[in-house]
Simulated scan of single mutants.
Amino acid sequence: MSILRAALRSNSPFSTFQTTSRVLFSTEAGQPPQGPVADSFLRSPRQGLVYGRLLGVRKHTLKTDIIHFLKDSNLTMEDVKVDYDRYFTPLAMMLQFHSHGAYEQAFRHIARNGRLYKLERVDRAQWDIVTPYDGKTILMRGFPRNALIDEIERFLHGYEYDRSSINIFLRQGETIDNPVKMATVRFRSRTDAMNAFITKNRTFCLNSQISILVLQ
C-alpha cells in the first residue's frame, strides 16, 4: 500500500505543477530586467548640467583665467558668466558644468590648490538671472551730467554697435551730490568692443575724460 501511495503522488498533476513552477520562477529570477526598467536602472542619475558660483575673483580676473585654472572641467567661454554689482565690480563668476563629475573635479582642484577660490553649488535660476555680456559690451564712465544720447552716439561714431542697446544711468560718486554718469553699449562682436576700448579709452566727451571697461 505504501508503494501504491508513493506511485500515485509521483503521478499527481499538482506535483508536476509545483515542480514546473519552481523551475520557472527560478529561471525568471536569474535573468536581468529587460527594456526601459533596465535602462532607467543603469542610467547614471548624475548626468546633466550643474551650476556653481565661484567666489574669490578679483577686479582683473578674466574668464579665460578661470577656464585655464579649471582646465580638467572642460569649461568654455559660454560656460562662464561674471556676476557684477551695480557699480560693475565683479562679485563672483557663475560656472556651468556639463556633468556632476566635472563639478566635483573643479571642487577637488580648488581644494588642492591653496583654496584661492571658493566654489558653491547653485541652481539654474541663479545662473539665469546673471546677464551674459560675453566681452561684447563696454561700460563708459565719466560723462558730464548734461550729456545726452546724441553726445554718446557722436562719441562712438564710426564703430559698429547696436544703437538700441545704449543704456545711460547714474551711480553715486565719491560724494552724494556728485553722481557719476555711465553708459553701456553692446557691439556686434568681441573684436569690435575691444577695438573701441583700445581707441576710445581715456578720450574726451564734452571736455570730460571717459574711462572704458569691457564687460566679460
Rank of each mutant, 00 (worst) to 15 (best):
P179S: 09
Y161N: 00
I210R: 15
Q172W: 11
G158A: 06
Y159D: 01
R202S: 08
T184R: 06
T203V: 08
F197L: 14
Y161P: 03
N207R: 12
R186K: 12
M182K: 12
Q209E: 14
F187L: 02
I166C: 10
M182E: 07
N195D: 02
E151N: 13
T203Y: 03
T199E: 06
N178F: 04
E151P: 04
V180D: 06
M194A: 10
D177S: 13
L206Y: 07
L206R: 09
S189M: 07
A196H: 04
V185C: 05
L170N: 11
C205L: 10
A183S: 11
I176L: 05
F155Y: 15
F187M: 06
I168P: 00
E151T: 05
F155I: 05
T203P: 04
T191C: 11
M194S: 06
E174L: 12
K181P: 10
N178Y: 12
D192N: 07
N201L: 08
V180G: 11
I198P: 00
R202I: 09
I168S: 00
S164T: 07
N207V: 06
F155A: 01
S165Q: 04
K181T: 00
E174F: 15
K200C: 04
D162K: 13
A196M: 09
I176K: 10
T199A: 11
R163N: 03
A193L: 09
T203M: 01
H157T: 04
M182T: 02
Y161T: 00
A193R: 14
R171F: 03
R171V: 12
T203D: 00
L170S: 02
N201T: 12
R186G: 04
S164E: 09
E160M: 01
F197I: 02
Q172P: 06
I198D: 03
I152M: 13
S208V: 08
K200L: 15
G173R: 09
T191S: 13
K181A: 01
R163T: 05
R186W: 07
S211P: 03
N195A: 08
V180K: 10
F169P: 06
N207F: 14
R154T: 08
D162H: 11
I168N: 00
R163V: 03
N201P: 09
F197S: 00
G158F: 11
F187K: 03
D192T: 08
T175K: 15
T191E: 13
I176T: 05
S165F: 07
L206V: 04
H157P: 01
R154S: 10
D192Q: 11
S189E: 02
Y159G: 01
N207G: 01
E151F: 13
E151I: 02
N167K: 14
V180M: 13
N195H: 14
N207E: 11
E160G: 06
R186E: 04
F197H: 13
R171L: 05
F187E: 00
M182N: 12
C205F: 09
K200G: 08
I198W: 05
S164N: 12
E174Y: 15
N195K: 15
Y161F: 14
S211L: 10
T184Y: 08
I198T: 10
R188Q: 06
E160H: 13
I168V: 14
Q172N: 07
I166T: 06
T191H: 13
V185A: 02
S208A: 14
D177G: 05
F155W: 13
H157K: 12
D177V: 05
D192Y: 15
R171C: 03
